[in-house]
Amino acid sequence: MALTESNPWVRWMSLLGFVVVWQLVASLLQTPDLPSPIEVLFSLQTHLLSGELPYQLSITLLRVLAAFIIAMSVGTAIGILMGNSHRLDALFDGLLVLGLNLPALVTIILCYIWFGLTDVAAVTAVALNKIPTVVVTVREGARAVDRRLLEVATAFRVPPLRTLRQVYLPQLYPYLMAAARSGLALIWKIVLVVELLGRSNGVGFQLGTYFQFFDITSILAYTVAFAAVVMAVEAIIMRPLDRRIGRWRA
C-alpha cells in the first residue's frame, strides 16, 4: 500500500496507532487515572444512550456555530476594508494587535461581568477572541488580490455583484478557507472554557462537573465524542469545499 496523500487509510493509521499505544499503556499501568479505550467506549455508549451527551453536545455546537458565523462575517468585512485602504489599515492596526494578544480569559471575564452570565455574553466573548485572527488572514488576501483582473471587470463593465462573485471572492477563497479552519479550531477550544466559567450546560460545563468528581472515564468519553464531531465537520464540510474551490487548480 503506497503511503500517499490520496490514500484515505493513511489518515487513520496514526489515529489507530495512538489508540493501540493508549490501550497498551493503560493495561500496563492499571490505574483509574488512565482508563483504557475500551472502558471509555463503554462510558461513551452510556452517555449517548442516556441522552445527556447528545444534549450537551448540541448546545455547544450551537454556540460554536453562532460564534463562528459572527467572527467570520465581521472579521471578513473588516479584513477586506483594511486590506483595501491604507488609511483604515493604519487606523485599526493598533487595535488589531491588541485584539490578537488579549488573553481569551480577559475577554471572557469582562463579557460575563458586563453582559451577565448569558449566552449572548458567551458567544460574544468567543467571537471577539476569533475576529482579530480572521481579520489578519483576510487582510492578507485582500492585499494579494490581482488589481489587473479587477481592471478587466471594470473595463468590460461587469455588474458589481458579478464582479464580487466571479472576480474578487475567488481570489479570497484560499484565505477564507484558512481563516475558517483555524477559526473553527480556536472556537471549539474557547467555547468550552466559556462554558466552564459561566454556563450551566454544554460540553465545557459537563467536563467541569466530571472534573470535580475525578470521573476521568467520562471526561475522555466526552472528548472522544467531541473529536468525532470535529473530524466529521472536516470530512463532510471543509474538505469537499476545498475540492470544489480548488477545482481549477487540478
Binding site: R148, L149, E151, V152, A155, F156, Q166, V167, P170, W248
Partner: peptide, 15 residues
C-alpha cells in the same frame, strides 16, 4: 460597448 485586449491575456483562472 468597448472591447479591451491587454498585454497579458488576463483570464480568470477559476472560470
Amino acid at each position: 460597448a468597448i472591447g479591451h485586449m491587454f498585454q497579458e491575456p488576463r483570464l480568470m483562472p477559476w472560470l
